[in-house]
Design a protein around this nucleic acid. Structure first.
Lengths: 109, 109
DNA sequence: CGTGTAAGGAATTCTGACACG
DNA sequence: CGTGTAAGGAATTCTGACACG
C-alpha cells in the first residue's frame, strides 16, 4: 500500500547541505518555505530537514523565479498539479474497488 | 558507465540524523569510523556527512558487534567482500572488451 | 575492546529585523 | 517582492582524554 518512499522522500538533509546541493542561499530556501512552497521537517532542536525530493523541487522553484514567476503563482501551479494527481489517485482506487467487488478479492486471509 | 548512484550513495546526512536513523550513539558511529568500517565525507567546517548506504552499513555493523564479532574481524569481512566484487567487475569488463573487439562496437560516432 | 561522559571550542542553524527596490 | 546582511542566541558537531572492564 503506497510505494516505497524510503530514500527520495526521507527528510534527512540539513539546510547547509541543501544550500551546497542547490546553489541557493539559506535565505532563499527559508523564504520559499515562508511562501509555502516547501515543507521541511524539524529536528528536536528546531533545525530544518529536507528530502532529496525537496532539493529537486527547490531547483524547479528557483528556475521559475528566474523566469520572473512570482511565488504565489508558483504556489498555485503546485496546488493545481497536486489536485490533479489526487484525482488520478482517487480514480485508480475507485476502479480497483470495482474490480475487488467484481472478483471478490478480500484482504487478510 | 557506472550506475546512477544519485541518492543512496550521496553523502548528505549529518551525524545527528544518522544517530536518529540507526539508534546508535554518536560515539559508536565515530568509533566505527576510527576502526575504518565507515567513511563519511566532511563539510567545509569539518562535520561528517553520511549516505543512506552508510546508514544501512552501520546497522549491519551494529548487528555483527552485537553478535560478538570484533571490529577488525568485521573489517576483514568487508575487505574480502569488496575484493570479490572488484574481481567480478573486472571479469565483466574483460568479457565486454572481447565482445567489443569481436563486433567492433566503437564509442563516439 | 567498545562505549560513556564531561570539557571547551568551533561550525551550524534559528528568528526577527532593517535595507533596497 | 525577493534577497542580503548583521545580531544574538541556541543547537550541533568536533577532538582528545579519562573511565570501565
Amino acid at each position: 500500500m503506497g510505494k516505497d518512499l524510503s530514500y527520495k522522500d526521507k527528510k534527512v538533509i540539513t539546510i547547509g547541505v541543501v544550500r551546497d546541493l542547490t546553489g541557493l542561499s539559506e535565505r532563499q530556501i527559508r523564504y520559499y518555505e515562508e511562501r509555502k512552497l516547501i515543507f521541511p521537517e524539524r529536528s528536536g532542536g528546531g533545525s530544518r530537514k529536507y528530502s532529496f525530493n525537496d532539493v529537486e523541487l527547490l531547483m524547479e522553484i528557483a528556475n521559475k523565479i528566474e523566469d520572473g514567476i512570482q511565488t504565489h503563482e508558483i504556489r498555485r501551479e503546485m496546488l493545481r498539479e497536486q489536485k490533479k494527481q489526487n484525482q488520478e489517485e482517487i480514480r485508480r482506487k475507485m476502479i480497483q474497488g470495482q474490480l475487488n467487488a467484481q472478483f471478490g478479492l478480500r484482504k487478510g486471509q
